[in-house]
Design a protein around this nucleic acid. Structure first.
Lengths: 247, 247
DNA sequence: CGTTCTGTTGATCGAACTCAACTAGTGTGG
DNA sequence: CCACACTAGTTGAGTTCGATCAACAGAACG
């Protein structure tokens, strides 16, 4: 078995629930294989027929769609522990493209593993449903941001999101962080042009909310930035009381 | 047992999979109770602690969030057979508000039923995961629309979406349909103002893509409307091959 | 029968886009 | 090793899409 990645899928449930050894092992089995990706590599092409899902072991990836006019909408950024490509469960083909933003490692597994999990470990199956639900709520936040907040807010929300997720993975993270995204990528995530993202970053800087030094970003005023961005940190507040007993 | 609603939760799987009698019954149990709602009634208040989920039996509802500045983003419209409130599985509280747009009927059940389903009917549990995945893909389409398409496209997409979903429920539907949404509601779904929605509808009409007669809408040129709206109908193409065997 | 809700239209404003030019860093191949 | 290309970021000028503000008509409603 390979070394357990820094932030594994199983770790998602760490503080919340005690997994049985059998459950631990079943989850670990999903991370058995590893596949390394170079920065820029495309892991899943949109509409590709494929039956594989992936768990991110390390690195940063994104999922996106390309519209008819060639423009790209980034749907989410993928951090270690995230599940990639669950939509093949419904359609047997990818509805989102996935590409690597940094060198990264993913663990591929077949979608039939999900069915097996449902039969052998009902509680894990319920947990996966729960994890998908967390992702759904995050999606909801992004949707509301796109529909109803200003360009500046949306850019700020991306900054906060990346910072917070990096922190969760690397608790020793400093207060300044490497964004790891180009301004064009931020634009494609927020529905803006790269040019306008640049101006918004400048404004945030001029207002004393953030500081930038080549590539690195430092958030100077967390509260004010989060308020302006309509940002909700949903790290806490999980309630797993309904889960069936282990067996 | 109450009369099975026109479009039940179980019916979702109709053409795709043969449910065992036990599975059918387990699904029917989720629709045992019924609750009627008047037009305008709020079923779930945002952030309400609650442990109930709902299945729509009849009518049209919406889920939404209200932002700090008071603006509303409608996240999705809820049609018969849709599952409401799955986010309580993760947080034990509602992350989205839900209100009724027409008189409607929903079937409430406790979230522990989901855990029970996972244990007693693993295949159904996998199916629910799959249904959620379908919803996730739809959400993805809306996100890309908000981020990357014009006001006119987004309005057209709502029209097509409502029409198509009504058709799926009532196969005898005519080619003109009752929209059932105010222009303000369309605006809150598409991230536009009611005023601008009005102008976009007018433009669509002037271009000969739709016709309107008090409340009713008729789509005159499906192809052209769908192309302009970047609309993808995802009715078909399901692939359930990975599901575990019934038991 | 006023009041409220919904739809409609015009005039004006402003946020974000487009186009364009320029800088700095990073390869990279001749 | 240097010339060239390419990427990412920056800034300015002008344009446009959609918002805002305002006024009004008709329907719905208590």
């Amino acid at each position: 078995m390979p070394a357990v990645p820094v932030s594994s899928f199983a770790e998602r449930f760490g503080g919340h629930i005690d997994l049985t050894p059998a459950e631990e092992e079943a989850l670990a089995r999903l991370s058995q294989r590893e596949r390394a990706l170079r920065r820029g590599a495309v892991l899943v092409r949109e509409k590709d027929p494929s039956a594989d899902l992936f768990i991110v072991a390390s690195g940063l990836l994104m999922s996106y769609v390309i519209l008819d006019d060639g423009s790209r909408q980034i749907l989410r950024f993928l951090f270690p522990g995230d599940l990639i490509g669950a939509s093949v469960l419904a359609y047997g083909r990818a509805s989102e493209g996935v590409a690597s933003l940094t060198d990264s490692v993913v663990c591929p597994f077949e979608r039939s593993e999900i069915g097996r999990l449902a039969v052998e470990h009902p509680r894990l199956s319920a947990l996966i449903l729960l994890v998908q639900q967390i992702e759904h709520v995050a999606m909801t936040d992004r949707l509301a941001g796109l529909g109803r907040t200003s360009a500046k807010s949306r850019v700020a929300a991306v900054l906060l999101d990346v910072r917070n997720r990096q922190r969760r993975i690397d608790l020793a993270a400093e207060d300044s962080f490497v964004l790891g995204l180009t301004q064009e990528e931020i634009g494609d995530a927020t529905g803006l042009t790269a040019v306008h993202v640049n101006r918004m970053l400048r404004q945030l800087e001029e207002e004393g909310l953030i500081a930038r030094e080549n590539g690195r970003v430092r958030i100077l005023n967390d509260q004010r930035l989060a308020r302006g961005a309509n940002y909700v940190d949903r790290r806490d507040g999980f309630d797993l009381g309904w889960l069936p007993a282990a067996r």
